[in-house]
Design a protein around this nucleic acid. Structure first.
Length: 294
DNA sequence: AAGACAATCAACCGCCAGTAT
DNA sequence: TATACTGGCGGTTGATTGTCT
């Protein structure tokens, strides 16, 4: 009977995300997209979270293009106008607002705009008092459906302007991380140089590594000649079979025939992202993720 | 200063549609 | 064609924070 749950609720962590979890998820998704599917992602990334929770966290909070902070008057007007046209189609409305999520818009509506919307609609189309209402002005009791009167009572929204992202709160933090990533990449090149002197690698793999370029917030993948494609949810999808990159504990334990699993299976870097976090500083994790890149 | 209340927003829930098998 | 699985969505909850008394 009923629908089976998407994950075992007894074994997954719930509630607010920690910075460490965010770091793991952000790094993983920036590298691999959703690695095949969101349900499997937490296991591959070493997160004790439901896949749907990971997806939501990424979409609503971690995506780099997101804008946090107050809504502008232009955005207010656009939301009001669109709600009047289509009702609570939050994903559609959010798609018209760069950097905003449906959850953001929905929350903003419920906490701020709903009152303004209702007062506007009442001005445009006076409502009879509620039966036995006694003057209760509860929002929750109000009709939440869009009113045709709004389009008439609400002025046409001005053109959406000045929505650039230069004012993002986390720009400095991002820049710092990007800089750190570049530094780590330089270190990595040195390590690979040392490693290549002591380990056997194919000429092709070595040249691919040498040709690989560092990436930070955006994808660049020169070694394979392909680039990730953008999915509808804004995450990048890995062009190769990285979703086969399973933690060592899940693999057969032997040498992998796939480059994408090579470093998961490596004795030096085996295990999940969480394992790495448990045993390393965050800088080390970032460095290791660069290794996963090749 | 402390408790009550309101506001905010991240996160969860459950349903639905599309896709794969 | 039927079934299972996954992503996406809207509604709702609950913890936290802010404001008022």
């Amino acid at each position: 009977m009923g629908r089976s749950p998407c994950c075992d609720k007894a074994s997954v962590k719930r509630g607010p995300w920690s910075q460490e979890e965010d770091a793991i998820l952000r790094s993983f998704v920036e590298r691999f997209g959703n690695a095949g599917n969101w349900i499997a992602l937490p296991h591959k990334a070493g997160l004790k979270r439901c896949g749907k929770s990971c997806r939501l966290r990424w979409l609503n909070y971690l995506r780099p293009e997101l804008r946090h902070g107050g809504f502008t008057d232009e955005e207010d007007n656009l939301i009001l106008s669109l709600y009047g046209e289509m009702g609570s189609k939050w994903s559609v409305i959010a798609s018209k607002l760069p950097g905003r999520t449906d959850n953001d818009v929905k929350n903003y509506w419920n906490t701020k705009l709903k009152k303004r919307y209702l007062s506007t609609t009442r001005e445009a189309t006076p409502q009879p008092p509620p039966i036995g209402g006694g003057g209760d002005d509860s929002i929750a009791a109000d009709d939440d459906s869009p009113s045709q009167g709004v389009s008439q009572g609400q002025p046409a929204p001005p053109a959406l302007v000045n929505l650039d992202t230069t004012g993002l709160d986390n720009v400095e933090e991002n820049d710092e991380l990007l800089h750190k990533s570049d530094q780590l990449y330089a270190e990595l090149m040195g390590l690979i140089g040392q490693q290549s002197a002591t380990t056997t690698t194919t000429g092709e793999a070595a040249s691919a590594r040498a040709a690989a370029t560092t990436t930070t917030s955006s994808w660049s993948w020169s070694s394979s000649g392909t680039s990730p494609t953008s999915s509808s949810d804004g995450s990048s999808m890995w062009p190769v079979d990285v979703h086969d990159a399973v933690p060592l504990s899940e693999s057969s334990g032997g040498a992998s025939s796939s480059n994408s699993t090579l470093f998961f299976d490596s004795p030096a870097f085996g295990g999940s992202f969480q394992d790495l976090l448990d045993s390393s500083s965050f800088d080390d994790v970032m460095l290791t993720q660069e290794l996963l890149y090749y």
